[in-house]
């Protein structure tokens, strides 16, 4: 079975000469289908850079990256946008919903860019909002929703396109404890349904929900362990 993520000797260098910063110094990582992986590390450890490379938002300086069997290194801009659309569902720390646009319109956006017809979009987006428990908030705009509700809309948006990989960047960083457990319960639920999840966090309690935790220090993986769940 092809792994969902296969990283070989990934490096990332910012700047050049005197100001050169080595963010990643050679990462080898394989994530299999159905894995729930947490990436931990102090700020500056390179975890956000790794996240951006995994999410096809940024290119690695060197190394080889395959996502779901697709060679990402060789893709051009339009190829990358197709990969982001079909293979990856993003959940951001700051929710990143489109302002002044209803929850439903936000959720159906990935399907819109994929070229799915209006009727099917409506059905799938409504179902996805129902799955995160926001069936009664479909026509609310982001500024009319609480932080926890906004993040659940973002989860629905990440799920609606049925991606191979769910990528969450500090998904609970801006949430209170009640909303945090709501969102983490949702991710657990997705995991039980067999989804592959990669989550970045610096909180041990959040990382404990995953079944595998890797820790980055100075651009290298320092530990890779399975949790006792």
């Amino acid at each position: 079975m092809t792994p969902v993520i296969s990283l070989q000797q990934i490096t990332k260098v910012y700047g050049a000469g005197e100001t050169e910063v080595q963010a990643l110094r050679g990462i080898d990582l394989t994530v299999n289908r159905g894995d729930y992986l947490a990436i931990m590390g102090a700020s500056g450890s390179g975890k956000s850079t790794l996240m951006n490379i995994i999410g096809a938002l940024d290119n690695a300086t060197s190394g080889h990256y395959e996502l779901d069997g697709i060679n990402i290194d060789s893709l051009d801009e339009s190829g990358l946008s197709i990969v982001r659309n079909r293979k990856i569902g993003f959940i951001f720390q700051s929710f990143n919903l489109i302002p002044r646009t209803s929850a439903l319109a936000n959720v159906e956006l990935p399907l819109l860019y994929r070229g799915v017809g209006r009727r099917e979009r409506m059905t799938r987006a409504t179902a996805a909002l129902g799955a995160v428990g926001l069936a009664d908030r479909t026509h609310h705009e982001p500024n009319e929703l609480s932080g926890g509700q906004q993040q659940r809309v973002a989860v629905a948006r990440a799920l609606v396109a049925e991606p191979s990989l769910l990528l969450a960047d500090e998904p609970t960083g801006n949430l209170d404890s009640k909303s945090t457990s709501d969102v983490l319960d949702l991710l657990d639920q997705m995991h039980e349904q067999g989804r592959t999840i990669v989550m970045i966090t610096h909180e041990d309690s959040v990382a404990a929900r995953a079944d595998r935790i890797i820790t980055l220090i100075d651009g290298l993986i320092s530990s890779d362990r399975r949790t006792m769940r």
């Binding site: 999410g55 938002l57 801009e77 339009s78 946008s81 197709i82 982001r84 659309n85 079909r86 993003f90 990143n96 919903l97 489109i98 956006l109 990935p110 860019y113 994929r114 948006r157 396109a161």
Partner: peptide, 10 residues
């Protein structure tokens, strides 16, 4: 940026 992240083409 958000639109591009969720797969909007150029």
């Amino acid at each position: 940026g958000i639109r591009k992240a969720i797969g909007a083409s150029k």
